[in-house]
Structures are given as structure tokens and as C-alpha cells.
Write a protein that binds this DNA or RNA. Structure first.
Length: 441
RNA sequence: GCGGCUGUAGCUCAGCUGGUUAGAGCACCUGGUUGUGGUCCAGGGGGUCGAGGGUUCGAGUCCCUUCAGCCGCCCCA
């Protein structure tokens, strides 16, 4: 055993999940799943790898260097481990579009792979919750996706002062920028500039805008636009501030704002036009979940062209994705994760034999308990020391202990409540029912 | 792809300017003998000091390479 321990290491950027870590992972997944289902989403999944072209079709050839791609020995098809779910989702929807109701609300919790250098909040394999509504182009669908996201955040125990949903809208930003004098061919550059606003010095930001031919006043307007957030429900302020801007974008924001207010989401949300994520394919509303000092926890938006891009009918869609890596960091930082052991399943009953030879009774009893649906364990240690065995029962956080001893001659066992310490004798044939009653099962 | 820091038992670390068979706490296992718990006592297993090479009489301790981790840059679907 010694010596070969270091022969193989887990690949860079991957994680091993030992029981406590796995229990935490299941907890996170259970929150995602439960809230998704409560909001009317149905769970799906797709293949772990797809044809490489599915990803290059959406993101361009540059994406390949970020993918784990491969070709079979002797084969001629290129594949890639999935780096995200949306292409698979679009493909799945496109190939079944005729038979699917509108809209469909789907969620999934797959693992993804990206060939990037690991750093804080980023690994090469991670888990990510996705929730999408396909076939509904109304602001209501956008709001519903934001609602399920906030539902997840609340379920994890976050409060609106800890995490925020930043909302933007491509059309609004485009209209505002063009209204402020940005030429259409400079839009992309300006988007990227706004996206990098926090990373570059103020004078550099201003200088770059100046190079696009903007006056000092207009540069100030754009700084205002990409700076402080706007409240939900105060869209008129935006319209007033940028007087003369086309109405259509603002109106769609107003409808979204109204939908968010109806759902009681206002404390969690605000407009922030510095969010410019996913320019490549987002078409309307875009949003990000942000916690102070961390990279974004979740992001999403409307992508009305994607299903068509993979060969389906023109179909509106909106979705969100939340990865587990940044989420864990924030949960830990906010003290919302307990000790990992607390997430391990607690045994209902721990069976102890104090007899030198119980004639197989302990094994039979454990088997009966398990057959009746209870989580039953016993020790693998040789000792008959009841104290030590009870210690083990306590360590695995069992709720009850059953002790086989001399009372077995009368067909009874000792049943001890490990939390209260109360103990009583119970006839063996009544044990299962007694335990079930006590456990409320 | 680029840069900085780090790498000693399962975990957290100690090991002074290179010098006898590499340590502690926690965890784990066994026992404290004939039935009551996370305490206590005693004992035990486990490390070729990330790996490879070099300098040296001698390296965990110095140098090079490599792998991995952390933190940034690029990128971020």
C-alpha cells in the first residue's frame, strides 16, 4: 500500500468526492432540484460528450482550445466533452420540437468540462444547474427564470444583501449607446469596453470612449449608464435620464420590472447595464447573480436564435446556469454550510451485540431492519465493549441503538435513544414497528 | 498560453544557518475481560519529506527540471 499512493493523481482541476464531500454535493443538488421542481421545471439530461461542431457552431472555432476534444482511434468524427449545456438543450429541443408543448420548462444538473487553468472559483470539471424556458418570448418567462434562481438562492439561505441579481437588456443598452452617439460598427467594441470597466483605470476607459468620437458629456453619460444600478420599477428614470431614446427597449424592461415586482423579487434585483455577458448569442434580457468580491455565481439570459442555429424552428428561449464551484465559496464564506459530516445520512438504528456468540441474531436483526426500510448499521469491530460500540454509534450520529444481550433469552432487546439517553426493553418482534413509530416513518 | 507563491504521515503543521535510524496534535486501529456513548490511560499501523536529476563526505533543508495546488493575467459559453 505504501509507495503506490502517489503513482496516480487526479487530473488537474478535478475533484475526488469522499463521503462527506459527496454528501455536501448531494445537498447542493437537492436544493437545485427541489426548487426547480417546485417552480414547475422538469429534469432532463443529455450526453456527456457531443459532436465538436455543435460547440463550434454556437461559439466559433476559437472555442476548441477551451474544450476537451477527442477523436476515436481510427474514427473520423470529432467529439468534445460538454463545456456547457445550452447547445445540447437546443439540439434536444430542435429534434423534438414538433411533439413538445409550448413552452417547455427544463432543468438539469450535469457535470461540465473546460480545458482552462484552474483558479479560484474555476475548475476543469464542475457541476452546474441549468434552468430554461423554451417557446415563450414574453417577459414573463424571463421573470420566471429569475424567480427560480432567486428561489434557489433563498433556499440556500442567502439574503438580498448578500447576493444580487443584476439585470440588463441588450436592446436597451444598444439603443442607449446609439442614442449617445455610438456608431453601429462600434457597438461591439463599446460592449467589450463596458464589460471591462471595472478592470481598467478610469482615464483609460474615458480615453477609449473618446477614440470612438464621443464628447466629454457623452462619455459621462456612458459612465453613468454602465455604473450605478437602477432600481426595479423606476424604469421611467432611465427614460428621463436618457431623454429621446427609443421606447421599445425601455418598454420591455418595464414589462419585466412589473413581472418581477408581482413575484416579490424586487429586493433581489436591479438593473445594471454593465452586464454584457454572452454577446455572441444572447438576444434580449441578460442577468448575472453576483456576490461581493467573487466572480459571478450564475448567469443567463434570452437566446432566441439558438434553436434555429442547430436546425430547429425559430424558437424563443431563456435560461440560467449556476455552477457549484463559486456557489460553494460563497456558501462557506457566508457561513451557510455546516460541518460536512452533518450532510451524511444519519442511521436510524445502530445494532450492538454484547454477547460472545449471539447465534447470528445480530445479522438477522440488521437484515430485518433494513428490509423494513430503516437505515441500520452495526460495528465491524471485534470488541464486545458496549461503551466503545455505543461510542461508534454516536460517532456516526445514529438515532437509536439496539443492544443484544442477556434479555434476548426473553425475546427482548434494549432500545436506547441516543439523543435523550432513554432506554427500555422491547420485544424483538415489536422492534421494527416501535422504531418506525419513534422515527415517524 | 504567461506570471507569483507553495508542496514533510489521512488532516493541520514543526524540523535552527545542510549532519546520527524524520517529529507533534488530530484522525485511524488494538487493548484497558465478561452490558452503556463522543472523556481518560496504554500501545500500534502509516511518510523512500510531490516526482526526477544535480551539487556535497553527507540534503527534508541548496540548484535545475517536472507534476500538482493556491493566487492573478488571458478567457469566461
Amino acid at each position: 500500500m505504501a509507495g503506490n499512493t502517489h503513482k496516480f493523481q487526479a487530473p488537474k482541476g478535478t475533484r475526488d468526492f469522499y463521503p462527506p464531500a459527496m454528501a455536501v454535493r448531494r445537498y447542493i443538488e437537492s436544493v437545485w432540484r427541489e426548487v426547480s421542481i417546485n417552480h414547475g421545471f422538469e429534469e432532463i439530461d443529455g450526453p456527456t460528450f457531443e459532436h465538436l461542431e455543435l460547440y463550434t457552431a454556437k461559439s466559433g472555432p476559437g472555442i476548441v482550445s477551451e474544450l476537451f476534444s477527442f477523436r476515436r482511434e481510427g474514427g473520423d468524427a470529432d467529439y468534445a466533452l460538454r463545456p456547457e449545456f445550452t447547445p445540447t438543450l437546443a439540439r434536444m429541443y430542435a429534434s423534438a420540437a414538433q411533439t413538445l408543448p409550448k413552452p417547455v420548462k427544463w432543468f438539469c444538473i450535469p457535470n461540465f468540462f473546460r480545458a482552462e487553468r484552474p483558479q479560484r472559483g474555476r475548475l476543469r470539471e464542475f457541476f452546474q444547474w441549468n434552468a430554461d424556458i423554451i417557446g415563450d418570448d414574453s417577459p414573463s418567462a424571463d421573470a420566471e427564470v429569475i424567480a427560480v434562481t432567486v428561489g434557489v438562492l433563498e433556499k440556500f439561505g442567502f439574503t438580498p444583501d448578500q447576493v444580487k441579481v443584476k439585470i440588463s437588456h441588450r436592446d436597451v443598452v444598444r439603443d442607449l449607446l446609439m442614442h449617445l452617439g455610438i456608431k453601429e460598427q462600434d457597438l461591439q467594441t463599446t460592449f467589450e469596453l463596458i464589460d471591462r470597466r471595472d478592470k481598467i483605470p478610469d482615464h483609460e476607459f474615458e480615453a477609449s470612449l473618446g477614440q470612438l468620437g464621443l464628447s466629454i458629456d457623452r462619455i459621462y453619460d456612458i459612465k453613468r449608464l454602465s455604473g450605478a444600478p437602477f432600481e426595479i420599477g423606476e424604469e421611467y428614470q432611465i427614460a428621463e435620464y436618457f431623454e429621446g431614446v427609443p421606447k421599445s427597449g425601455i418598454e420591455s424592461l418595464e414589462r419585466l420590472g412589473s413581472e418581477l415586482r408581482d413575484r416579490g423579487l424586487r429586493p433581489w434585483c436591479h438593473y445594471n447595464f454593465s452586464i454584457v455577458r454572452g454577446l455572441a448569442y444572447y438576444t434580449g434580457t441578460v442577468f448575472e447573480v453576483i456576490a461581493e468580491g467573487e466572480r459571478s455565481v450564475a448567469g443567463g439570459g434570452r437566446y432566441d436564435k439558438l434553436v434555429e442555429l442547430v436546425g430547429g424552428p425559430l424558437t424563443p428561449a431563456v435560461g440560467i446556469a449556476m455552477g457549484d464551484v463559486v456557489l460553494r465559496l460563497i456558501l462557506e464564506d457566508r457561513g451557510l454550510l455546516g460541518e460536512t459530516e452533518e450532510y451524511l445520512p444519519r442511521p436510524d438504528v445502530f445494532v450492538i451485540s454484547a454477547l460472545d456468540d449471539d447465534g447470528g441474531q445480530m445479522r438477522k436483526l440488521v437484515a430485518d431492519l433494513r428490509r423494513s426500510g430503516l437505515h441500520a448499521r452495526h460495528s465491524y469491530r471485534a470488541t464486545k465493549n458496549v461503551g466503545k460500540l455505543l461510542g461508534e454509534a454516536g460517532k456516526v450520529r445514529a438515532r437509536f441503538a439496539v443492544i443484544l444481550g442477556k434479555e434476548l433469552e426473553d425475546g427482548a432487546v434494549a432500545l436506547k435513544d441516543l439523543e435523550s439517553g432513554d432506554q427500555r426493553e422491547v420485544k424483538v418482534e415489536l422492534l421494527v414497528q416501535t422504531l418506525k413509530d419513534a422515527l415517524g416513518k
